[in-house]
Amino acid sequence: MLTIKDLHVSIDGKEILKGVNLTVNPGEIHAIMGPNGSGKSTLSNVIAGRDVFEVTQGEISFLGKNILPLTPEDRACEGIFLAFQYPVEIPGVSMTNFMKAAIEAKHAYHGTTPPSAGEFLQMIKEKQQLVGMSQSLTGRAVNEGFSGGEKKKNDIFQMAMLDPKLAILDETDSGLDIDALKTVAEGVNTLKTNDKAFIVITHYQRLLDYIIPDFVHVLHDGKIVKSGDKSLALELEEKGYDWIK
């Protein structure tokens, strides 16, 4: 589904990713761990198409298509979703309008018919239940005045609404309380199907108790230095990163 080959990325002439290789198949959950500043968010932003980062070398293909020439919105419509480490506020824009615009954009891209107003409202209801987001939040402006945890939940709610093929969750667990963490994880597990994949970026083993990864990778200084199964996360929790550097 997602194939990254020898990816090098720079910002302002400074190289941040230094040859990342990663293959994600449908139905898989990959966890990426690694010290602060190792390039995890950079990697997720580059997959999503943020243009402040310059891809100097390498390839990214998604569902067999080279996505490097695509705009961020086209990548989104192709089915890539990013839950941000720091979701931004968009004052005055209601969640309903925002989601409506997003869903309509996706349907326009694929030439399909968007849901009717009734279907859309029904969808909002269902999905907010699924991710445990309160109705009062969907009634407000996008992330405006949301608490840190509420913003994270909101991104997961949006993920549920947009039903992506590949979802990248960048430290979605940071800032979530234990109950919220469980609900969000349950949401992810419900959404998980054989044709979808997740990349979960986290610092904590705890999340991986609920969302069980097929693979765990360690990103260090712009490279994946170690990959393994879920036991690697436990090992990291115990020993830290020193031993693999």
Partner: peptide, 9 residues
Amino acid sequence: FYCNQRGLK
């Protein structure tokens, strides 16, 4: 970018 990522031009 946040909007772009949700599919908006």
